[in-house]
């Protein structure tokens, strides 16, 4: 990834409340190119919320998310962040009525991009030859692999993975580790939200959300 596309992420006292319920208390963090941060904590400690806030899917109740692509660029607004990140989470559903390949092609086209290497991308996540099946027929493991492919679709500078190894077999877990390593080698920014110790070990640092 060339330096103009390297991401610098800063969180300043980021928090989220729903009425009386405080889901996330002030989080401050700075992440630079080539870093991997694991976000750990009990169920309900706000890991998924944190990733959604960074991805621009939720509005913060307090604090700020600042994502710059390129060292001296202006920070992106929420719409910019949504386009700039690669996001995968258990509640991210893809279209059941489309095939795996059709899903990837659609999400690329809707971003204004062509996808000449759809086959390679499917193969990279272990779905070679299954691209022509409807997602409805996929197993949960296959869906998770497709989610990974979705996250990597735009070759994003920032990768936000929420429980990426969920439903995956050994080969799948290895795939996740490999993906994170590749992204790190390309000087991208990765945040991994997880309960699993093995997954958490993929990070250089851990942000622990519940003491």
């Amino acid at each position: 990834m060339d330096t103009s596309r390297q991401a610098f992420l800063t969180l300043e006292n980021l928090g989220k409340s729903y009425g009386v319920r405080r889901v996330l208390r002030g989080v401050s963090l700075a992440v630079g190119p080539g870093e991997v941060v694991s976000v750990t904590g009990r169920n309900g400690s706000g890991k998924s919320t944190l990733l959604k806030l960074i991805a621009g899917l939720l509005r913060p109740s307090q604090g700020e998310v600042s994502l710059q692509i390129g060292a001296n660029a202006k920070p992106l607004d929420a719409a910019g962040r949504r386009q700039a990140v690669g996001y995968a989470a258990p509640d991210l559903a893809l279209y059941d009525e489309l095939t795996g390949r059709e899903n990837l092609l659609f999400f690329a086209r809707v971003r204004g991009r062509r996808l000449p290497d759809a086959e390679r991308r499917l193969a990279d996540v272990g779905l070679a030859g299954r691209g022509n099946d409807l997602v409805r027929a996929y197993s949960s493991g296959m869906r998770q692999r497709l989610r990974l492919a979705f996250a990597l679709l735009a070759d994003p500078p920032v990768l936000l993975l929420d429980e990426p190894s969920l439903a995956l077999d050994e080969a799948g877990v290895a795939l996740v580790a490999q993906t994170v390593a590749r992204h790190k080698a390309a000087r991208g920014v990765t945040l991994l939200a997880t309960n699993d110790a093995g997954e958490a070990a993929l990070g250089d640092r851990a942000l622990v959300l519940d003491g």
Partner: peptide
């Protein structure tokens, strides 16, 4: 919401965590 007693998030470097000792690392870049 503000009064809720929630422990503050902390940042840990993985190398030290692996060695078993938890240190509070101020790892702001």
């Amino acid at each position: 919401a503000e009064a809720e007693e929630a422990p503050a998030p902390r940042l840990v470097t993985m190398a030290t965590a692996a060695s078993g000792a938890d240190t509070e690392a101020t790892a702001w870049t």
